[in-house]
Amino acid sequence: MMERNNRICDIMVCAMARMIQDGDKVFHGVSSHMPMIAVLLAKELHAPHAVHLNIPGGVDPSPRKLKKYTSAGSELLDGARSYFPLMEVFDLSMRGGLDMAFLSGVQFDLRGNVNASVIGDYQKPKVRLPGGAGSAVLIPTAKRAVIWRTKHDKRTFVNQVDFITTKGNVDRIVTPLCIFKMENGELVLDTIHETSSLKEVQDNTGFPVKYSRIAITPSPTKNELSALKRIDPGDFRNIEF
């Protein structure tokens, strides 16, 4: 199981890294080990001029100087080229200058609505969640919002979310089974990971899975895997599993 999870994690991280283009200004939030390492991977391999923005405000922190990855700790200020605080990230996004934001949530539905607020009725919820925080601002305003989630089941992907924390502008959702994309206002299947199958995706999704073709998420290359070992020798990207 651990070996399979490690493989799935690498597929997800590499898939997210490939979405980053050279020169993109990219932000990730708290508890975001996988997208953080995806940004570092992209900068090392194909997008050296991408700009890495984060919660502490360290712009382009150097992985060689990071002793551990927290995705939101003071380590992300070490070796940074400059300081760009979170409030400025919000302003940048609302002005149309943030190219990509990696964010997450707890529930997602066919229309790309994101719930990070409550499970159940809002007045008497079964579970009260942390809330939208920056997601409510960044998902609608970033040029591309990429969601990732380490769970893919019918409680996560539902026909209608219990509460709409934020909606609109979701570009991709990366899961342990597949990648969804938004097309004509609905989530449709983009690619399936080699470790999964169409049936597994359908069986674990609470809405009909739409697709025009069946494509497999490209496997991590030897070059990508080698770079991941250099960037993340402590395998911190698997903490989220």
Rank of each mutant, 00 (worst) to 15 (best):
E3H: 08
E3I: 08
R4S: 10
N5A: 11
N6K: 13
R7F: 03
R7A: 08
I11G: 00
M12T: 05
M16L: 05
R18M: 04
M19D: 03
M19S: 06
Q21N: 12
D22C: 07
V26N: 02
F27K: 03
G29M: 12
V30A: 07
M34A: 14
M34T: 11
M36E: 14
V39I: 15
V39R: 03
V39L: 04
L40W: 09
L40Y: 04
L41I: 07
L45A: 10
A47I: 07
I55N: 06
G57R: 09
D60H: 01
R64M: 07
K65S: 02
L66H: 09
T70G: 14
S71H: 03
E75Y: 06
A80N: 09
R81Y: 01
S82R: 09
S82P: 01
S82H: 02
Y83M: 08
M87W: 06
M87E: 14
L92E: 12
S93C: 15
M94Y: 04
G96M: 14
G97W: 05
L98I: 12
F102R: 00
S104F: 03
S104P: 10
S104H: 07
V106G: 00
F108H: 07
F108E: 08
L110A: 15
R111G: 04
G112V: 08
N113G: 04
N115M: 13
N115F: 13
A116L: 10
V118A: 12
K126A: 15
L129R: 10
G131Q: 09
S135K: 13
L138A: 09
P140I: 13
K143Q: 13
I147R: 11
I147N: 10
W148H: 15
R149T: 12
K151V: 05
K151N: 08
H152Y: 05
H152G: 04
K154C: 08
K154P: 01
N159T: 06
N159S: 12
V161F: 07
V161N: 10
V161L: 10
T165Y: 07
K167D: 05
G168A: 05
V170D: 07
D171L: 00
I173P: 08
P176V: 07
I179E: 13
I179W: 04
K181T: 12
N184A: 15
N184R: 15
G185K: 09
E186T: 13
E186K: 15
E186F: 05
L187Y: 10
T191V: 10
I192M: 05
V201E: 01
V201I: 01
D203C: 00
G206P: 02
F207R: 00
P208L: 07
V209Y: 03
K210F: 01
A215P: 00
T217P: 00
T217I: 02
P218N: 04
K222W: 02
K222R: 08
L225D: 06
L228S: 09
L228E: 11
I231R: 07
D232G: 05
P233Y: 01
G234S: 15
F236M: 13
F236D: 09
I239C: 01
I239N: 10
E240V: 14
F241N: 15
